[in-house]
Write a protein that binds this DNA or RNA. Structure first.
Lengths: 128, 128
DNA sequence: ATAACTCATTACCTTTGCTAACTGCCAGCC
DNA sequence: GGCTGGCAGTTAGCAAAGGTAATGAGTTAT
């Protein structure tokens, strides 16, 4: 429940109205994973393929990603982040969520460390 | 972003189709806070009053909460959890999310402790 | 060669949140 | 005492974001 509340807060508090959290999350995943098929990306983001299709379509309209045919299996739509997309994540990483940055600044260093350490555990819960 | 992914996972994975996560969260809050006006509850759950109105209405239809007039300020609609509601949270606490319980079982004791310790920090981020 | 399966997409629906507008109630001011 | 402004909750209507079911194109297996 705490996760749900914090999620709502994070969503609301983001003054940045350029990208939704999901678009941003997908973009970040693409940056880390490299070119990835839509379905795989959907699985990673815990979303159904149709939802990911829409997210990608929006990002593609903004020129932040491109869809490319897979060289050998032409059923797959491989998504790749563009230069513009990379710029976007970099820019966003800078002024990322002024609110969150501020909040984090109010925590003690230990608290921040605790948060950092718990992150892989949360990821573990998300997968598997 | 990890919060978002985990949130989606938690929502999807809950086989329990009786109550939504938000209803359950509100119910739990009511149990801990005691009778609470709608607006205050909305603030606690990080939701706008109209959204909380709907959540409460649903719970009321299920007989899990009741709305009562505030003794002195009759603008306020004080929400109180019923016996049935208490039973519901207790029942839910038992078989709470078989999936989550299983997942937690795969973690080491330290990892579970880390999670537990980070919870108040997350709450702190949610408020303020 | 065809049947069965897979990936992505499309079409449509549900959930859940929001804002704006409305009602009933309280409080201050004349 | 009676307006006037403001506040709590609700109602109405809308938008975002997810899901399922069905479709089309491409691949694999029989």
């Amino acid at each position: 429940m705490a996760i749900g509340r914090l999620n709502r807060r994070l969503r609301n508090e983001r003054e940045d109205d350029s990208l939704t959290l999901n678009q941003l999350s997908a973009l970040g995943a693409l940056e880390r994973l490299g070119p990835t098929p839509v379905g795989e990306l959907a699985a990673h983001e815990r979303v159904r393929p149709p939802s990911m299709t829409r997210i990608i379509s929006n990002l593609e309209e903004l020129g932040l990603v491109v869809r490319e045919p897979h060289p050998v299996d032409r059923r797959l739509a491989v998504v790749r982040i563009t230069e513009a997309g990379l710029g976007k994540t970099a820019a966003d990483r800078k002024r990322r969520n002024a609110w969150l940055a501020n909040q984090l600044r109010t925590l003690t260093p230990e608290e921040r460390k605790q948060l950092r350490d718990v992150l892989p555990i949360l990821e573990k819960l998300t997968r598997s």
